[in-house]
Design a protein around this nucleic acid. Structure first.
Lengths: 239, 239
DNA sequence: CCAGACTCTGAACGTTTTCTGAGTGGGAGA
DNA sequence: TCTCCCACTCAGAAAACGTTCAGAGTCTGG
């Protein structure tokens, strides 16, 4: 969830990962985010799928059974395919391998990732490489605004400093104003997919966020608790 | 329950649960709610039924004799079936297993559930994934309005704070305006199916609701008692 | 290598909610 | 009118829930 589906698909993506769980998780999630998705489980199939479907972007695991992601990319380029690539890398992959990735509009995220982060990165790359679509990477809710490119949050002019997790949490809330989000939903979207702790961590981070976002005790609180259900970001003007 | 049947069935559902009691309870209840229902008792049959009937949504117990719900889902996706899933999980299934259940428009409810909750969740998921039908998740009766997404109730503009059970009770009443509902009916729809207390609890909650909803002593009461029969939500324009 | 920031867990605390039992009130039939 | 029964309300116990804090462990930048 997060964003509503537009009329047509936003863009066509090629998802390549050899672990079926991750592949399906990504495919399902990205489809729901409004993308058209085709997927492959190895480098060979990925090349064939790229030829067949002409995607706008590929989400590509660097660790594949037959050839690594860099080889796949090189062959794609050699075949005249110049769509951008979002690499999936393991966290312990030496950094120098990763540094060369962000040239040419490509980007990467480390496994395990959070689903909303992948969607955000994909949109960011597409925004850079296909600047015709004029969504400006700024989400606004009342006097709150979150700039994805600058990674900056403001409440009525003044900047609010947030930790990475706080930022992602607020981002998810702002993408779904006036809709109650359960702790499970928040966990699934904001936290990394392999997190297997308690959903109560969401309570902690809501608490941290409120301390930074809802400071003024007189103003109506933006972040509200729906006891037994979840949390909502409530706009002032509602219907 | 709830709504009157339209001309055709609202959507086609696949119900999968190995306990025959629960399966039949769900199937009967959902049929009455206007859905077309097919059911299966294990993962294998579920996959076959999905192939044969092409449902719009599946209600899927995560604990099945042959394979768990996640495996079923993954195989469905691999087979190109991308309809949303509403998972049924046991509450004591240490909830960390919940990871990934709410992505892609999917959702879950914990056993034991209340029947109206399941119907509400199904409608919510269908609304999110099939946005062509533009019912906007708001139920209106006179100047009362109940917003399912925001989980918020208003009486003529002002917000009314309700506890979860109060909310579900009012919701059930609003789905059946001008129809007398017996305490047994209310209990069956609003409370969890394993509740084995007295029906007099309905009286208590009606009392709580009135205190919040029918405050104005001059205005005609919305919630009315039919002595010996049950309760009605009575609209102003009606008889 | 150190200091600070960040993430996550567990526990304490206060609050809300759920449910039950008992007393009170009022409607309807005899 | 009287009586019986149903419904209403209140009060209280137990459980569930959410908030916050302190602390342990980890990561990161200087």
């Amino acid at each position: 969830m997060g964003d509503m589906n537009k009329n047509g698909p936003e863009a066509k993506l090629l998802v390549v990962d050899d672990e079926p769980n991750i592949r399906e998780l990504l495919a399902t999630s990205l489809r729901f985010a409004g993308f058209e998705v085709v997927s492959a489980g190895n480098g060979r199939d990925a090349l064939a799928a790229a030829e067949l479907h002409a995607p706008d972007l590929a989400v590509l695991d660097v660790m594949l059974p037959d050839m690594d992601g860099f080889t796949v990319t090189r062959r794609l380029r050699a075949a005249g395919k110049h769509f951008p690539v979002l690499f999936l890398t393991a966290k312990d992959d030496t950094e120098d391998k990763v540094t060369g990735l962000t040239v040419g509009g490509d980007d990467y995220v480390t496994k395990p990732f959070s689903l909303d982060e992948v969607v955000a990165r994909i949109r960011a790359v597409l925004r850079r490489t296909q600047p015709q679509v004029d969504d400006d990477a700024v989400i606004r809710v009342d006097d709150l605004q979150l700039d994805d490119d600058a990674h900056e949050v403001r409440r009525g002019g003044t900047v609010i400093e947030l930790s990475p997790t706080e930022f992602k949490l607020l981002r998810y809330l702002m993408l779904n104003p006036n809709r109650v989000l359960s702790k499970a939903q928040i966990l699934d979207h904001v936290w990394e997919y392999d997190f297997n702790g308690d959903a109560s961590i969401v309570e902690s981070y809501i608490s941290y966020l409120r301390r930074k976002v809802d400071i003024d005790p007189d103003a109506p609180a933006l972040i509200q608790t729906k006891r037994g259900v979840g949390y909502v970001l409530r706009t002032a003007e509602k219907r």
